[in-house]
Structure formats: structure tokens, C-alpha cells
Design a protein around this nucleic acid. Sequence first.
DNA 1: GTGAAAGCGCTAACAC
DNA 2: GTGTTAGCGCTTTCAC
Lengths: 342, 342
Amino acid sequence: MPSVTIKDVARLAGVSPSTVSRVISNHPRISVATVKKVREAMETLGYHPNMMAKSLVSKSTKTLGLVLPRSAEELFANPFFSEVLRGMLAYANQKQYDLLISSANNQQDELETVTRMVLGRRVDGMILMAPRKADPTVEKLLELDFPFVLLGRSLEHPNVLAVNNDNIKASFDATQHLIDQGHTRIGFVSGPPDLVVSEDRLKGYQWALSKAGLPMRDEWVMESDILPKNGFHAVSMVMNLPDRPTAFVVSDDVIAFGMIRELVGAGYQIPEDVSVVGFNNIVLSELSNPPMTTVDIGIYHLGYQAAQHLIRKLQGEEILQTGLTVPHRLVIRQSVRSFIRR
Amino acid sequence: MPSVTIKDVARLAGVSPSTVSRVISNHPRISVATVKKVREAMETLGYHPNMMAKSLVSKSTKTLGLVLPRSAEELFANPFFSEVLRGMLAYANQKQYDLLISSANNQQDELETVTRMVLGRRVDGMILMAPRKADPTVEKLLELDFPFVLLGRSLEHPNVLAVNNDNIKASFDATQHLIDQGHTRIGFVSGPPDLVVSEDRLKGYQWALSKAGLPMRDEWVMESDILPKNGFHAVSMVMNLPDRPTAFVVSDDVIAFGMIRELVGAGYQIPEDVSVVGFNNIVLSELSNPPMTTVDIGIYHLGYQAAQHLIRKLQGEEILQTGLTVPHRLVIRQSVRSFIRR
DNA sequence: GTGAAAGCGCTAACAC
DNA sequence: GTGTTAGCGCTTTCAC
């Protein structure tokens, strides 16, 4: 670990340290000859700038912060996360930014971690995932007037920079698809109830039913942790109702897989006995048996746009509205039965 | 963004900046009274240390670096990644370390990114994923004498700190399981050929066959990108051989899903016509139809142990051999047919 | 036990 | 165009 500094380069090139600094930052008025000398010196010494020193004075880290809610381990045992991260990295790296990642066990922990990153001057901006209702982290960042972007939306602060799907409409579309296929008794399986996204998808489901004049029954709506292990006996309860649903809108593909497995175990056939439409269109949705009908929410783009908007904001560019809402798309496969004959 | 520094705290507490610094770092000889004063001042001012300044002088960042091979996008569309990351974060965070993440499009890019992180003094140690044969990044880090840990193993440098599975044995076990069920014609589907792990799993497969005196045919061995999209027409070629295999060892669950889908599409039943055993035991392996027999390689632990060993090394603790090889375990489900009657 | 002073590696006025 | 100087916020001798 040799430690070659700007001084070493200056000495070898026969110039002052500030000149070297100017060469590094492509200062306009600097003679071609010196640039060449300095570049060569940097080359032969294998110089790399110390980013800590640089950040200390420039007050910029070229780093974006990200805190994963670990307690919501559910959420990230989920392929959703790698996909959204890929999207973030794709844009960030292209703009020479890196991601600083930590995880938190609970809301309190998350707040502390974000504060530590931000006030510790380790990042230039934050990406916040899966905001909750009355999210204290959002409040804190607002109070600090620190740049951040939400993956999802804030109920309390609609004007905060946020990249999101139109989850209400997406859920409406999923439900409408079932209605179009002739289903009239449709159930819903929700994610963690305190997430804004869960609420939105429930709303979309209710909207579609009410618009079609279809019955809504509380017993047809189930809350579920995103991890498939839990709570699937709830499924059997619903299925034993005298007027059980013939189809379910399930707010996550992984939950949907778990649900299908439970149903198959109980002797039901998919989609003959029960239809299922999921959310996310993860890689395996296509490869499952039967291939899953699901709403593709553009996870990669969600991450990509989040990074893009945040970095644009950091660079003082004007925020373009485009990309703030990532379009969704219903992907029709074979987990939904049609009662309509053509 | 108020910027309260150690000086502000010093002034309010009526002490010198160095005293504040000592309080922060729990210096032994410092009076209880001063500690109290300083703590209170920090509290009322909302002081948080500037980590950039701290790192600059202490030469420690409390950060681990990680570079994702993006070109091997295959690899990380894969739930493998979120799982291993969860493991790393779990240990790292517990020890107050964060992860600095970037991605690279190719080997050259990876080398540059790693160099930038390391020589830019942004990280204290590196975690290298999926080392390849003759990996230049490994060579570079060795040359720089910079602390790092491998997720996997290096062919050329067996003494480098590495957390790995015994992939040869794991693949042997998977193959042996098929043999135990009465299969005699067994095929193999490999991951990217330049990864060490691919080679190891191929070896284990060959070992089991040769030990059992079973035939090995080149036509039964397929290379595949990890993304399921590609190369599955190779499957139909194998299946049209006059002496086609009755079972396949597939070196990744996601590939296995794609393969099963392909087979089902071609009219084969799993496991009646073709048996499949995968690797990784991702969440969805259990939820698939049929549930997949697979080798659980302890992905989370792989990440956890990698972070643990690296951090231990950074702290100058002696390296314990325990945990360097993460145990694997065959998880028997329903994707393998048995020819043995009991 | 505590303070003063130097310095980590860099950038940015300000001179000339 | 280039050098000199000061200073970013912190730690760490070295005094006392």
C-alpha cells in the first residue's frame, strides 16, 4: 500500500501541488506542457487521489446512501431488491457515483443510520426505500434539508421527490383483468399494512370492484407478511367460506408463489379452481408452473430513475417530471382462468 | 444542513477540541466531569463527527468495498445476490461497518473500480465475488498487499483468505443422490465456464459418475449462461439423443427453473420423465411446482462469513479456520424420480 | 487530565 | 499560467 500524494507528483513533475490539483480537475488555463508533465508523473508514480481528503474540502462524496430495512427482511429475501439495486447502480456508476449501503433492524435504527450517514458527511444524497405512513426518516431528512429521493411515495409530503408506480391504477388493472375474464368473487392478499404501497394496491382493488358493482367482502382480504412462510392458514380459512373467491389479486409474486403452493397442497388446481394474479414480474414468474400472470412494475427502472433524479437534483439540474412515475404493464400468462368464451 | 464541528462542542463545553476528541474516542485518562460536560454539549448541539475528516487522519473508513460484475448480469438477476448481501450486511453492520458498492461491466472495468476504491482510500477491505480463473483483480490486490476476502476460491492462490463451499463435494452429493435413486444416465448443466465454481461443480459431477462406474458423455454436459433466456435449445438437442439422460444436475436453481419450463413445454413431466437437482435453494425453490430438490449452499452464511473474516483480519485478530468452508446440505423435494422401490 | 500545535491530502482564493 | 497560503474537521504527539 504505497501512499503517493499530490506532493509526490508535484515534486517529480517539478511543479507545485496546486498545479497538480488543477490538472486533475481540468482547470481551463493551464499550459499543455505542464499538463503533459504532470500526467506523466501521475502515471509513473501510479497516483490516485485520496477521496477522503478530496471530500473533506470539496464537501462532495460522489456517493449515494441506501438503508435497507432488515426487519422487513421479508422485503429483501425478495428478488425485488437485487433488481432495484441493479437499476440504481447502472445509472449511478455511469455518473461516477457509488452506493453506500447499510441495513437497519427497525424504524428507530433506520433513522439513526440515515442520520449517521448524512451528518457524518458520508453521502451526497439518500435513497429511501418503501416509505411508511408517517415515516420519521422522511421527516428528518426534510428537517435537515438534505437531498433525497423516495422509492414509493409519501402520504404526508406529496411534493417530495419520489419515483413510484401508479400502484392504485396497477392494482386496478390487475383486478379488472380478472373481472374481464368473468370472475365476480375476487380476493386480495396485501403486503405489510404500514407500507404506502400496500395501501395503494388495496385501494386499486377496491376501486375496480366498486366500479364493476362487484361485492367486496372483508373476509376476502388477507394481510400477509411478504415472506411466504407465514400466515397461509389464512388461505384455507378463505377457501372454506361458502362463497369463496375464484380469484385473488396478490400484491407480490413471492407471496403469490407461496399461496399457489398452499392451494396446490390443499388439492386445488391453478388456474382451473383458483386464479391468481401477482405483482412484480420477477424472473421466476415466467418460469413457474403455471407461468404467472402478473403486473410488471419495472423494478429495474424504478431503481434507475431514482438514482437519476437524485443525481440530477444534486447537480442542480431542473427536475424533469418524466420518469417519476414508472409505467406498469400487465403480463398475461397462465395463472388466470377465463370464464369468457370467445 | 447545520455543520457543527468538534470546535463548536469544545467552545460550548469550555474545553479544547482535543479534549472533545478524547471523549469521543473514550480516552482512558479523562475526568468524569469533563466527559459529562462534553457529552451534554454534543447532545444539545446535535454533534455528529465528520467521517471524512476522521478517515483522513485515522486512515480507516469503517467501510468494506464490493464490486458487482454487471456483465455477469446473469449472476445478479439471481436472488443469490440479495441473499449474500444480506449476510454481509448483517455482520458488517453489527461491527459498525458499511458497504460501498459499485458495479463493473467487464474484467477491465472491475479492476479499475477496485483500484479506484482501494487507492482512493475509500475502503478498509474488499470483498471479491465469484473469482475467475487467473483473476487480474486478485493479482492486483495481492500486489498492493491490500486486505480482501474471496467469495469462492482462487485456483492460483490457494492461501488467499476465501469463504467458500466445498463445491466439488456438493456437486458430488447432488449427483450421488441421483445415482442412489437408480439413475444411470445423468447430465450436467454448468454456469459460466470461466468461474471457478463452475469448474468445481463439474468436477464433483464427474467424480460421482466415475466412482459409480457410470458412463460420462460429453453430449450430456451443457454450458449455460445463468440467465434462463439463453441456450435452452441445447436442452432439446440432449433430449433427442438416443440414450438421453433421465436426470440432470443443474448448477443453479434459476437455470433449473428455466430448464424445467423448457422441458415441460416440450411435453416432458417432472420428475416422471426427467429428474432435476439444482443448486442454491433460493426461496422459490421450495415454492415451485414441483418443489425442487436442490443443494442448499448457505448463501446467507457465505456473505456473513466473508464479512466476518475480512473484518477480523482488519482488526488484526487471528484468522479462525472455522467458517471458511460453509457447509452444504442436500434438500430433497420432489423434482427427482426414484427408480428404487422400497 | 488537558491544551497547543502540527499535520492527514486535498482545494481554492489570492497573488504575481 | 503558476506558486503561496490557508484551511476543510479531525487525531495525536508533546508539553505542562
